[in-house]
Design a protein around this nucleic acid. Structure first.
Lengths: 168, 168
DNA sequence: TATTGTTATACTCTATAACTATA
DNA sequence: TATAGTTATAGAGTATAACAATA
């Protein structure tokens, strides 16, 4: 069984910040890695809340988008498009198949490869997921100017694209 | 035993990007959460490489900095300063103690609380770790202007500080 | 009742080694 | 030899519940 077949994770309790806001600047305030990790985690938490009714994780959602954007692609092609190691994509694909959102046939030309597509159930789900995702993005975009948001995404891409490709 | 007592993790193989750079813009290119996660992961990988000779993880390093900045503090105070749940700080403190980098006595005023300090070994290690960390920061800062870097850190802080405090 | 420290456990993403089947 | 798919396993960070000891 997959874990995600269980009850959706309860949204984080929205605890109030009780810490006094007069915190002095800390040595760690400008650590890039720390700020990135914590920001990523904040977005992850909101993702789980926004998508709670769909029992959807970010990696699962991006796999669905990859499949929708590459109809009939093989797992290796999905892996390459997502830039995620094949070995980790396998788990996502199995889970999506178990949930009836994708189908995996055998390719005619290359009998090693699969031919992956959204099922009708999957195709029907996508617009709802996209709506939820747009809501999530808009929520964070609300606290930035448009140019600031674009610069942020460009800067972040420059950071991670400088590293080695994650696709195996 | 703690895992970190084992051999330092081998630095990631620096694989060349073989993917053709003519990738068309993808739907996922402007996903904030994805860009944040991947950027954070890139910095994490570099952290592991730069700190490989010290067998040091980011969380462990930031705990050391927290302790150095709060001599004699309790675990709860360290947790609050780091803004990390107590339950996760416990693991870091135990590991640091096992490695002889910190000492944990009992507080005189409150017999529940500990009084945490760097050991001499820990104090001697800190300058080396700081040097490595400065190198790491400088490496990523090199690809940005100073104002861009400041804006980035400010934006990231705004994102994660908007969420609930992680300190329990 | 509340706080301190702790154990146990789970979840998400990422990473590597090793294997089978096919090319 | 190389590629596609898979299994198993590990590491890093984050999260919650529950407990004993102390306040």
């Amino acid at each position: 069984m997959t874990k995600s077949a269980s009850t959706p994770r309860p949204a984080r309790r929205g605890k109030q910040r009780t810490v006094a806001p007069n915190d002095a600047p800390k040595e760690v305030d400008d650590w890039l890695g720390r700020n990135l990790s914590r920001a990523a985690n904040t977005v992850l938490n909101r993702f789980q809340e926004v998508f709670s009714e769909y029992d959807m994780r970010p990696a699962l959602y991006s796999a669905l988008v990859a499949i929708e954007n590459n109809p009939g692609a093989s797992g290796a092609q999905i892996s390459s498009w997502m830039d995620v190691p094949r070995t980790n994509v396998v788990i996502l694909l199995r889970e999506l198949e178990e949930r009836g959102l994708i189908s995996r046939g055998r390719s005619d030309e290359d009998r090693r490869a699969q031919s992956i597509d959204l099922t009708q159930k999957g195709r029907r789900l996508m617009p709802k997921l996209r709506t939820a995702h747009k809501r999530l993005e808009a929520e964070f975009a609300a606290s930035m100017s448009s140019s600031e948001r674009q610069l942020l995404n460009r800067t972040l891409r420059r950071i991670w694209q400088a590293g080695p490709s994650s696709a195996e």
